[in-house]
Design a protein around this nucleic acid. Sequence first.
DNA 1: CCTTGACCTCTACTATAGTCGAGGTTCAAT
DNA 2: ATTGAACCTCGACTATAGTAGAGGTCAAGG
Lengths: 169, 169
Amino acid sequence: MDNPPFDAKELTVGQLAARSGVAITALHFYERKGLIHSRRTSGNQRRYQRDTLRRVSFIRVAQRVGIPLRMVAEALDTLPEGRTPTRDDWAELSAQWRDELDLRIDQMTRLRDRLSDCIGCGCLSLDRCLLRNRDDRLGEIGPGPRHLLTRRLAAESRANPPGRLDDDE
Amino acid sequence: MDNPPFDAKELTVGQLAARSGVAITALHFYERKGLIHSRRTSGNQRRYQRDTLRRVSFIRVAQRVGIPLRMVAEALDTLPEGRTPTRDDWAELSAQWRDELDLRIDQMTRLRDRLSDCIGCGCLSLDRCLLRNRDDRLGEIGPGPRHLLTRRLAAESRANPPGRLDDDE
DNA sequence: CCTTGACCTCTACTATAGTCGAGGTTCAAT
DNA sequence: ATTGAACCTCGACTATAGTAGAGGTCAAGG
């Protein structure tokens, strides 16, 4: 009881879009990227299992914190691809993701504290205080074209012997 | 004593790149975007005032938290564009930016807590718990093509009468 | 003199995350 | 049966944040 006559109440793209608050084009896009999946009707239209709504929610929430789709895809791939995910499946995924969030909050907090120190002590060496501590990066999961970013930074730290970073003025 | 014979020890692009850990191409890019400025030699080469190092540091740090360059540019524009910024100028800027950081940490924390609730209570409605609370967004300053993102979300919330967001299963 | 390294500009390309529109098909209701 | 809304694909386009390379210039040392 899972494959042939198990439509129950599938969703069309439009419905999924309306209910998730995500544009249809974005849903197409997510599907191309393998983040969501659909069955096709005889007329080639998409039909989504209702739990896809949850997937989409998960995606959006992850995006809100700046996790790139590629990583969201990886996370979603750990869900059982055969059966409909159970609440435990989701709970596990969410817990993992919450850990990620914790990590990011932590890194950001450390960054802020270092910044506060710089302001407080008047040393003013943003570069010395912050850039010198490139080690605990936030970048791997950061924003923007973060792949280029991390790739480049990684390349640079290989090229730049650590410790050599004179400061100005 | 500020304009004609006031080179002191200006930096070349290469030097700035080496010291800031930022690629030359990126520095060119920042300059095109108005984030940093240079004098040109008679031979059309860039010469940077030493405080540019600080600007670059500031830029990178901001990026690490996901602030888009456009906003970094705005922040840097509040620095006195005539004279070399004093430590107070920088302190003020950094303080503002730290507030921004505080805000983001706060939002992220709230998001995480809501997520924990969802896992804990077993309600499992990521969509109900998280998407329904679209109001306190992290998006405006989020990652990716966040302009398109926020524009679209804004358009949708206009199109979607609030309150109408039925959930699945 | 002439070569080498660092610099210059410009165009084109990469990746992410989508959006938009053209041109054509399907679904559901009258 | 027909009509209109919703759907399909495909290719081009947007924005961000850069990178890569071609072709040319500049300045210093051998």
